Amino acid sequence: MSDNTTQVFRIYIDAPAERIWEAITTSELNNQYGYGGNLEIDLRPGGTYRNFATPGMVQMGMPEVVVTGEVVEADPPHRLVLMWDPVWVEEPATRLTWEIEPTGNGSCRVTLTNDLTDAPKTAEMVEGAGPATNEGGGGWPWILSGLKTLLESGRSMSGSGS
Rank of each mutant, 00 (worst) to 15 (best):
Gly34His: 13
Gly34Cys: 09
Gly34Asp: 11
Tyr35His: 14
Tyr35Gly: 15
Gly37Val: 08
Gly37Leu: 06
Gly37Ile: 03
Asn38Thr: 03
Asn38Met: 12
Asn38Cys: 11
Leu39Cys: 15
Leu39Asp: 08
Leu39Ser: 09
Leu39Ile: 14
Leu39Gly: 09
Glu40Ser: 14
Ile41Ala: 07
Asp42Ser: 10
Asp42Asn: 13
Arg44Ser: 12
Pro45Glu: 14
Pro45His: 14
Pro45Asp: 14
Gly46Glu: 13
Gly46Pro: 05
Gly47Ile: 08
Gly47Trp: 11
Thr48Gln: 15
Tyr49Arg: 10
Arg50Gln: 07
Asn51Val: 06
Phe52His: 09
Pro55Ser: 06
Pro55His: 11
Gly56Thr: 09
Gly56Trp: 11
Met57His: 14
Met57Ser: 13
Gln59Ser: 15
Met62Asp: 13
Pro63His: 02
Pro63Met: 04
Glu64Ser: 15
Glu64Lys: 15
Val65Arg: 03
Val65Ile: 15
Val66Glu: 01
Val66Phe: 04
Val66Tyr: 00
Val67Met: 03
Thr68Pro: 03
Val71Asp: 03
Val71Pro: 06
Val71Ile: 10
Glu73Ile: 09
Glu73Gly: 01
Asp75Leu: 14
Asp75Val: 05
Pro76Cys: 12
Pro76Thr: 12
Pro77Glu: 05
His78Tyr: 02
Arg79Ile: 08
Leu80Tyr: 01
Val81Ile: 14
Val81Leu: 07
Leu82Pro: 02
Leu82His: 03
Leu82Glu: 02
Met83Ile: 08
Trp84Val: 00
Trp84His: 04
Pro86Gly: 12
Pro86Phe: 08
Pro86Lys: 07
Val87Phe: 05
Val87Met: 10
Trp88Thr: 11
Val89Phe: 09
Glu90Cys: 01
Glu91Thr: 09
Glu91Asp: 11
Pro92Phe: 04
Ala93Ile: 03
Ala93Asp: 04
Ala93Ser: 13
Ala93Arg: 09
Ala93Phe: 02
Arg95Met: 04
Leu96Lys: 01
Leu96Glu: 06
Leu96Cys: 02
Thr97Met: 02
Trp98Met: 09
Glu99Asp: 11
Glu99Ala: 06
Glu101Ala: 08
Pro102Cys: 07
Thr103Trp: 00
Gly104Tyr: 01
Gly104Phe: 05
Asn105Ala: 14
Asn105Leu: 10
Ser107Pro: 04
Cys108Ser: 05
Cys108Asp: 05
Cys108Ala: 00
Arg109Lys: 04
Arg109Gln: 01
